[in-house]
Computed example of a mutant assay.
Amino acid sequence: MPQLLPLQLFKNLSDDTRLSLVLLLREKGELCVCELSSTLKETQPKISRHLALLRESGLLLDRRDGKWIHYRLSPHMPAWAAVVIEQAYLCQRDDILKLSQQAERDNGTPYGKPVCI
């Protein structure tokens, strides 16, 4: 995994979609691509492209479960980067909670598999 530099972190977080993905993963722990796509109301290819950039920079880890790929924040990211993400989360917590609650209402399930079918 390449060393994450501050400029790379801030470039990654300067995009609204990527920032929202990171903050949602901070809130929920782990989500699959379809859950993230549904929550942000974006296409799966767009979300997957942004997730790949975040994964390549060392911010995210992924795991495959059948046809689904689940993402989570990497516990291996530098401590300074985790602090930046935590502070961003604390600033945006209310908005992220509303977004995640709205997704649960829209989907009729708290990030369950039916969203992904």
Rank of each mutant, 00 (worst) to 15 (best):
R26P: 02
S14C: 11
N107L: 08
R26I: 03
L59S: 05
G112S: 06
D16L: 13
K28Q: 11
P110T: 00
C34D: 06
L13K: 11
C91G: 07
V33Y: 00
T17Q: 13
Q8W: 04
L60R: 04
N107I: 01
H50Y: 06
S57W: 06
S100R: 01
T17K: 13
L25I: 04
Q92H: 09
G66F: 00
P2M: 06
C91S: 09
T39K: 06
W80S: 12
C34R: 15
K67H: 03
R63A: 05
T39E: 05
E42I: 01
P110N: 09
G29D: 09
I47S: 00
N12H: 04
I69F: 03
L61K: 13
L73D: 01
L23G: 05
R63D: 03
Q8G: 08
F10C: 10
G112H: 02
I85Q: 07
Q8V: 14
L36E: 05
V33A: 14
P110I: 01
P78T: 11
L21A: 04
E27H: 15
H70F: 13
P114R: 05
P45M: 04
G58P: 04
L19C: 11
L40R: 02
Q87D: 13
L19I: 09
Q3D: 11
M1C: 04
I85C: 01
Y71N: 13
R55E: 14
C34W: 03
E42M: 10
V33E: 09
P2K: 14
L31V: 10
S37C: 04
S100L: 01
E27V: 02
T17F: 10
S14W: 08
G112N: 05
S37N: 09
D65R: 12
Q44I: 03
V84C: 09
A82D: 12
W80Y: 10
S48C: 01
D95R: 14
R63T: 09
C32T: 03
G108W: 06
K67S: 03
L60D: 06
S20H: 07
L25Q: 05
V84P: 03
P45E: 02
R49P: 00
H76R: 14
L9S: 12
Q101D: 10
I69N: 00
D95E: 15
S57Q: 08
L21E: 06
Y71W: 09
K11S: 12
T109M: 04
E30S: 15
K28R: 15
E42Q: 10
C116F: 11
S57G: 08
P75R: 14
R26Y: 13
A52G: 06
P45V: 06
M1V: 08
G29S: 07
I96R: 04
V33S: 15
R26S: 09
D94T: 12
L23Q: 11
P110H: 11
Y89N: 07
P75V: 06
D106T: 07
E104W: 03
C32K: 00
R18N: 08
L61V: 12
S20W: 06
L40V: 00
T109I: 10
M1H: 14
Y111Q: 02
A81L: 01
I96T: 03
E27W: 04
P78Q: 12
A81P: 00
W68M: 02
Q3C: 03
L36H: 07
R18T: 07
S14K: 13
P75F: 12
S37L: 06
L19P: 03
K11W: 08
L5G: 07
V84D: 08
Y111E: 02
L31A: 14
D95M: 04
